[in-house]
Amino acid sequence: MTASSPHTSPRPTLLGLFLIFSRIGLTSFGGGLSGWLLREFVQDRGWISEEDFLNGLAISQALPGINVKNMAIWIGHRLFGWRGAALAVAGVLVPPAFVIVVLGSVVGALILHPLTQVLIAGAAAAATGLSLSMGVVTARRVRRQGLPLLLMAATFLAIGILRLPLVWVVLIGGSLSVFCEYVAIRRGAR
């Protein structure tokens, strides 16, 4: 079947909607979910037009909260009203929450085992290494000029040494950085 051919999928059902969102919730990590939702509901099943999907995606991204949850509400409501919205959200949240509780119980039971400690220490080391790698890459991209280096050093000092609240450091440092860059651009230095 080509992308432009008509869809012959069966009509949507509440159970089908719940199962699709359950599968997405159980097998998804990180971003890219909007692409998966597009494929499931627009391309493979033809339950929603591409234009409607993109409108719903724009609304979901503009609203507060998690985009996939917002999309579940929108798609569920679009297909079945409030019952569809409730089942879609339940599908995307409840099965993964159940798995997390079960995994948490298993990890809790095994936490004192020496191998578990080694695995957790290894995961922590890998996460630290990834963060350090990102920091090095970012530091290499900083222009070798006084003000950007000063802002970078001040951010490190504020968060790493003084332990100031991250929110305030980002708000103040980010605003100062944007303002300084704006002034430099207006002067024609960039």
Rank of each mutant, 00 (worst) to 15 (best):
I100L: 15
S9C: 08
I161V: 15
G135I: 08
R39D: 12
T155Q: 05
N70G: 09
I59Y: 13
L57W: 11
V118C: 00
V137R: 15
A123E: 06
I185N: 05
L63S: 10
S4Q: 12
R187I: 06
G173C: 08
V89M: 14
L38E: 13
R144P: 00
A123I: 15
Y182C: 12
G56R: 01
G81E: 02
V68L: 10
A121K: 14
L130S: 13
L93W: 10
G188Y: 13
Q117T: 07
I24G: 00
S9R: 05
G76K: 07
V68M: 13
F29S: 01
A88W: 10
S60L: 04
V142R: 07
V167L: 15
I66M: 06
A126K: 09
V106R: 06
A153Q: 04
R141G: 14
E40D: 08
L176Q: 04
G146A: 15
V142K: 05
D44H: 10
V167R: 13
R83W: 11
L162W: 03
Q61L: 09
V89I: 14
Q117S: 08
A90M: 11
A154E: 04
L171R: 07
L162G: 07
G160P: 03
T128R: 01
L115I: 14
G31N: 02
F156G: 14
S177L: 10
V169Y: 07
A126W: 04
P148L: 05
G160R: 08
A126G: 11
A153P: 01
N70M: 09
F179E: 05
I75T: 07
G76A: 08
Q117C: 00
G16P: 00
L176G: 15
W82C: 00
I59C: 00
P96R: 07
V107T: 10
T13P: 03
S105F: 11
V99Y: 09
D52L: 09
S4A: 14
Y182V: 12
L79H: 06
A154T: 08
G91L: 06
D44K: 13
G173W: 07
L54K: 07
W82E: 07
P6Q: 11
N70R: 10
I75F: 09
S131D: 00
I100Q: 05
G173V: 08
A126Q: 08
A127C: 09
V170C: 11
A123C: 13
P165M: 10
P114T: 02
T155K: 04
L33A: 12
L17H: 01
L38C: 05
S49L: 02
R45Y: 03
I172H: 03
W168F: 15
A184T: 08
L87K: 05
Q61H: 09
S28G: 04
A184R: 15
L93Q: 06
A123Y: 04
S4L: 11
